[in-house]
Write a protein that binds this DNA or RNA. Structure first.
Lengths: 118, 118
DNA sequence: CCATTACATCGATATATTTGGATTTGTCAA
DNA sequence: TTGACAAATCCAAATATATCGATGTAATGG
């Protein structure tokens, strides 16, 4: 894809170890005070990364604005979850530079690309 | 690999529009004074991004240290090319987040994971 | 040898990002 | 309503990154 530049905001959102940790947690949430298997409460992210509440809010805003995470407000809480199609799109853009399929686990409609053995 | 964190340096290297432009150029180089279809000379990158020579050198160092680009010195020149397996690995890591399945997203098809033993 | 070319490194400045404290907004429970 | 809580926003300071000019290093050509 020529449009690596179209993913600029997403790459910048990924360029922080705390945000990567948050994304890994959203991918596979562990039990916490307000977190279930599908949604993660912002308050649990504070203890996860060990930052103040405004800092967590700042990082989540970056992730949401980049389209990598979806925020869902529920009462006083905000629950976050991964926007998985965005990651699939990013993976595809990177795979085009890598010369192969991003991941066989995801593509239900692959087979349009010649499978190249490494 | 649970570790997006292992790709931290690579994501940071991608978090710049000039570097994305350079990568797109390395992916599909156009004719220039020292550039052929496989290798790109640093001097051609200067005119591509419109920055000074030290700035280009700085960006290329970041890309090389992240493992995304390979530098090959030839006489007075340095030729750069994409390290495509690194992009394939990044794409796979992102696709595991995009696949909707929190379980270890290892490929059932072994062809594309030759280098990526956990 | 010296001059030139191509790139790297250094030093300083400008800009961007990160962070926490204080404050504000919005929501729920008495 | 008031009180408490969760999160967002504002503000200022600390840190990181980007950039350029000047200089250094290495290789080529005379």
């Amino acid at each position: 894809m020529a449009g690596m530049l179209a993913h600029d905001a997403q790459f910048r959102a990924l360029a922080d170890p705390l945000r990567l940790r948050i994304l890994a947690f959203l991918h596979k949430p562990e039990a916490a005070c307000c977190t279930d298997a599908e949604r993660v409460c912002a308050c649990d992210l504070e203890s996860l990364v060990g930052l103040s509440q405004p800092a967590v809010s700042h990082h989540m805003k970056i992730l949401v604005q980049a389209g990598l995470v979806v925020a869902e407000k529920s009462g006083r809480w905000v629950f976050y979850r991964l926007n998985r199609p965005a990651f699939a799109g990013l993976a595809q853009a990177l795979a085009s530079l890598g010369g192969g399929d991003p991941a066989p686990a995801l593509a239900p409609d692959s087979a349009s690309r010649s499978r190249k053995a490494a």
